[in-house]
Structures are given as structure tokens and as C-alpha cells.
Design a protein around this nucleic acid. Structure first.
Lengths: 343, 343
DNA sequence: CATCGCCGCTTAACCGGTTCAGTATTCGAG
DNA sequence: CTCGAATACTGAACCGGTTAAGCGGCGATG
């Protein structure tokens, strides 16, 4: 079996079938212009030869697609590794892409300038048909950039700040409200939220919702403090909060990683969870169920979100007008880390 | 600024410079055939126009590179998300690739047949210049597959089972020995290793080394049990082991995720760590430092490994003979989860 | 002074597809 | 029987690069 054989081209098929290149192209793409009989003969030969279209040649034709989407993740390597969110997102995207013969180009960068550079390069070199934008920031320059090129794009987040781009967004506000009322009902009065950086659109949305819900539930002491999603920052922040005289009785974290770190700190400081402190995580992953007590969390279906965003981008690339869509909101998953104060 | 402008081509540059396409190509690629003066003029125009080579066109030329490497990860979505190893690996690979204008195609699949299909498709469609193979299995069919096509490839693992492919491997055996002797020195006699699936080459290597080291250290009760890297399986296995009458006093896990799960189980069962049970994790990530007590772990520099494997593949793609290389072995990082038995 | 060889460039072919314009053949309608 | 149109194809251009071959002009060499 010819391992070293040249990849077959449509010209090889044409010769074998005794027809022209063009006829083969029509046959293989299911377009009119060849008889049923010839079409079948060509398809059979293509199959026998193990032919597959050269993605590069196909992309070169006017109007041709490259068959790849791009995703840039802008987080330093060492804490990216533990963030379950992204891998789940990638899994979801690829589950959808697998059916459409599209590949995913993943790029992990350290800083935002580099990130913009990647989009520019992907566009200029014609590497991707479209990109997915995550971690939308306030006044995000990437939005203007892809709008200008223009490069088809879908934003996971928004819809505020997404400009003219299609967004796939969640109603975080109502999840926040659910969490706040849940904690209030358990008797908590001093609730602190350990959030991600303020520059992210979703962080601000949640902060606004958190303040509104706290006012609604009569929790005057509810405040938001900012960390950076890393376990280290979660631990540091928690340590500071628990050392205060009027230490909070409930902490709401913006991701699961900081919540796990917070739990470790509480244990280290001898603060009983949930007896003296309740902990809620945002983004439910295996992590929340591994630790003891298991963490109460706001569970979102990230994989499904990945699928949906990939589907939207596929439509956008085909020139369809996609618009923005809302995905299912996070559900509060009560577990052992929350409860009424005891003693 | 022309957002809607067509991407500039070398033909545009040629017209602006008043020379032919070929001259522009020579100039842009730093090859002889144009005068220094013309070369500089062409480069200036290219820069002004914001030109970048079309990767698809370039790849189409005989001998042309696509400018992309492929990586297939074969783990179901839900526990992939939490496995820090892969994201760190990806970060390392991309850190190296960034300099060479090469992109990474990432594919996450659910089963092995699909994985082989991805390699086949990538080759047939000419999507990648080479691939990185991870999670090498015993009699791995992927090795024969890429050898036959042939598709340049580098194996992360081996070198046994890597066939004629270049491998980047670690001396796991000596790390295993270090762990075993460390535990023996602490006074442990009943040491159990919770390993990954037996089908992985590195699992078998470690198992063999574990048995040898245990014999050497005089630990007759040292055995290996198999789990599947997920937190669930780690928890289940730990629960079973700790329920035994002659329960082990030390557990060595093949990844950090199972170790964290094991710690949670111990806590849940009222087994004090490290007073009654010592825990060692393989692969050190933030996870190990988040929990309390922090986990003693065998720390490997996965990011550096990613860089190295990318570098090797780049050389292999250029036709250089690469050979196999050894990367730095894991270092035991003692932390709070290990110690002598108390009471 | 004729010749050789190199420099600097142009021309054209090629990579592997897609697609448009044109052509020969068949078929139905008038 | 003739005309028009649909059918089934062919030939060639095109996408945006790379590269081998060719070619005029110039300087060095014999």
C-alpha cells in the first residue's frame, strides 16, 4: 500500500475517468453539469484513490473558505491550565465543528497587544474564516478591529459592548439575584463577592446585578472586591477578608478556581465551612465536587455554549445575518459549602 | 482607512513598484535576484500596503508549508476541562510556535477511531505540516499511521513504542524511585499507587519502576491499582482503599486531579492527612497548592516540554533528522500532604 | 576587441482546486 | 422537418504565491 504515494488530485481522477478537470469538480461538489452515471463513476474513482480536497487549493479560489475558525485565549499559561472553562468551551466548539469539516485554530497569548496581532495576522494571511471572541472587555478594541477588516466574528458575552457583532450572552443578572436571595434566606447579612477584573463586561454586569439584588434583599454590607481569577489571588483576597473583625459570613466567587482556593484558606484559618462561612462558586466544574465540602455553584453548560457559538459563527461566515442570542442562564446548584450559621 | 479593501497581493506590490511578480517574491523572501535598492523599495511598499503572504497560496506551491501543526487530545470533554496538563502543554507549544509563524490546530475527540480519522484527514486535506502525538499507548496504531502516510510527527512520551518517530521522553522511573524511597524513609510500609489506564506506555513504565523501587526499599505491600485520571475514579478508588482493614498509609496518584479527589475522600472519611495518610500527586499544578494541606507532588515543567516538542517538530518538518531527546525529569516537591504517621 | 559570466530582472509554468463561457449532442415542440 | 432549449461536457482563466528558464547589459578577462 503506497505510503509514499503522491496525494491524488482531481486531475488524477479526471484521467482515470476520461473526463476533464471541470467535470470532476462538478461531480464531487454535487453541482449540475454531469450525468448521473458519470457522477457516480467519478465518485467511485475518487473513493478508490482516497482523494480528499486540498484545503489550501480550495481556499485559494475566489470565495473559497479556509475551513477554520480561530480562538484566542488571553491568559498566562500557568493559571490557564487549571481554568476548566476554556477546555470545556473548546470541547463544545469542536463537537459542533467536527460535522462541518472545519478546524479550530487555538492561540494562547500573554498580552492583549499580541492578541490583536493574532487577529490581524489570521486575517491578512487568510488563516481563518472567522473568529470567536471571549472575555469581552469594556471598550474592547477587538470589536472595532474585526468589524473594520472585516472578519466574521461572534462574541461570547455581551451583548453590551459587542458593537455590531453577533453575541451569545447569558442573563447573569438573574443568576446573581438567585444567589443573593438564597444566601439572604439562609440568614447571611455580610456577603462579599470576590469578582474577576473589573475590565470584563460580564464582571461589571454581575457587579451591578449584585448591588441591586443586595439592596432588594436588604443586605447593606454586600460589596464586591476584585481579584484576577487565579487561585493565588483568590486565596490572598479570602485571607484578607477573613482576617477582618466583621468578617463576611458568605463569599461568592466569580469562578470555581478562586472558590476552591478560598475554601483552602478557610480551612487553614480554622473557619468552618459552612458553619461559619458559606461559599458559592461561579462556573461549576468537577473541581467543585472534588473538594470537601463540595461547593455550591452556579452551573452553566459551557459545552453547549461552545456548540452554539460555533454554530452561530458558521452561519455568519456563510453570510447569514445571525443576530444575538441568549443562552440558558446558570442554575444554582446547592451543595455542602453553604448553609445557615451555626454557633 | 479602507476596512473593506481587498487584501493586497504581491501583484499590487509589483504594480506599485513597477516590477514583476517574480521580483517581488524574490525581494520579500530575501532571496538573490534583486538589487538592494529595489529590494528595499519593495519591502517599503509591502509594509505600507499592510501586505502579508496568503498562507493558502504559499502552501499550494510545490514544497510549500501550510504553517500549522496539529494536536489531537483524546479525552471526553467533561474531565478534559480540569486536566491542567493539556492547557500547559498547549501554552508551551504556542510559545515556541509564535516565533515561527506557525499555528496550532487543536482537536478534541471522544474516541480513538475518530482520532486516527483526524490524522488521516489532516494529511489528505493538507491541513498541517506535522503532528504531535500525546498519550502514547501500547502498540499505538497512530505510530504506524503517520509513518505510512508519511506525516512528520513527534511523540511526547516513549521512547518505547514510538517506532521510528522522534520522541521527547522523561525518565519517569527515577522520579518513581525518588517518591518510593521518600515515603519509605517516612516510615510508610503500605504504599498504593493509583495509576492511570494500563494501556498508556508511561503508565506501564511507572508501574514497572514502582515495583522495582518497592522491592528495593523493602515494601512488599506496594501495589498499583488502575483508575482513569478522572476525579470521580480517583475518589471511588480511594474510598475503596481506605475502607480496607489494612488500609494503606500512603497513596501515590498518577495525576493531580485524582490526588485532589483522594484528599477530599480522606477528609470525608475522617482520615487525617498527613497524620494517618500521606498523599503524593504526579504533575504539579496550582491545584496542588490550592487545597489544604497542599499536596506533595512530582513537578514537571510541562510548558518547557511543550516548547521542546514544538521545536523538534519544526526541525522534523524541515527534513532534519531529529532523533529522540530526554527532557528534565520530575522533581519531588514535598508539601503538607506527606509526613510520618502520628498516632 | 571578442568573449565569458554574472547581475537584475522578466516571462511563464505550476500548485489544485472552482467556475465561466463555449460547444456538441439530444430532445421536445411547432 | 426545423428550430430552440436543455443537457453533458470541454477548455481556459483565475485565485496568490514560488521558481526555473531566459535575456539584455555591464564589467572583467584573455
Amino acid at each position: 500500500m503506497g505510503g509514499l504515494m503522491r496525494r491524488p488530485t482531481i486531475m488524477d481522477i479526471a484521467r482515470a475517468a476520461g473526463v476533464s478537470k471541470g467535470a470532476v469538480s462538478y461531480a464531487l461538489n454535487g453541482r449540475p453539469g454531469v450525468s448521473q452515471e458519470t457522477r457516480e463513476r467519478i465518485l467511485a474513482i475518487a473513493h478508490d484513490l482516497g482523494w480528499a480536497p486540498s484545503s489550501t487549493a480550495r481556499a485559494l479560489s475566489p470565495g473559497g473558505r479556509v475551513g477554520a475558525f480561530g480562538l484566542v485565549i488571553d491568559r498566562p499559561a500557568r493559571f490557564l491550565g487549571v481554568e476548566p472553562f476554556f477546555m470545556q468551551l473548546v470541547s463544545g466548539i469542536e463537537a459542533e465543528l467536527a460535522a462541518t469539516d472545519t478546524d479550530l485554530l487555538l492561540q494562547v497569548t500573554d498580552d492583549r497587544k499580541a492578541e490583536a496581532g493574532v487577529y490581524r495576522r489570521w486575517f491578512a494571511e487568510r488563516r481563518v474564516d472567522g473568529v470567536i471572541i471571549v472575555d469581552l472587555r469594556v471598550d474592547d478594541p477587538r470589536v472595532a478591529l474585526v468589524e473594520e477588516m472585516p472578519l466574521p466574528a461572534v462574541v461570547l458575552g455581551g451583548p453590551q459592548g459587542g458593537g455590531s457583532l453577533s453575541c451569545l450572552y447569558t442573563d447573569d443578572a438573574s443568576s446573581v439575584r438567585e444567589v443573593v436571595h438564597y444566601l439572604a434566606a439562609l440568614g447571611h447579612r455580610r456577603v462579599v463577592r470576590v469578582a474577576g477584573p473589573d475590565e470584563f463586561v460580564h464582571t461589571r454586569d454581575r457587579t451591578r446585578a449584585f448591588e441591586a439584588a443586595a439592596a432588594e434583599a436588604g443586605l447593606p454590607g454586600a460589596v464586591t472586591v476584585h481579584a484576577d481569577y487565579t487561585g493565588e489571588s483568590g486565596a490572598r483576597t479570602t485571607r484578607r477578608l477573613l482576617a477582618r473583625a466583621d468578617r463576611p459570613t458568605a463569599l461568592v466567587y466569580d469562578n470555581d478556581l478562586m472558590a476552591v482556593a478560598g475554601l483552602g484558606v478557610a480551612r487553614e484559618m480554622g473557619v468552618d465551612v459552612p458553619g461559619q462561612l458559606s461559599i458559592v462558586a461561579w462556573d461549576d466544574s468537577v473541581l467543585c465536587r472534588l473538594v470537601h465540602p463540595a461547593l455550591t455553584a452556579v452551573a452553566r453548560d459551557v459545552v453547549a455554549g461552545g456548540r452554539e457559538v460555533a454554530r452561530m459563527l458558521a452561519e455568519a461566515v456563510q453570510g447569514k445575518s445571525v443576530g444575538s442570542r441568549e443562552t440558558v442562564r446558570g442554575e444554582l446548584q446547592p451543595r455542602g459549602s453553604t448553609g445557615p450559621l451555626t454557633g
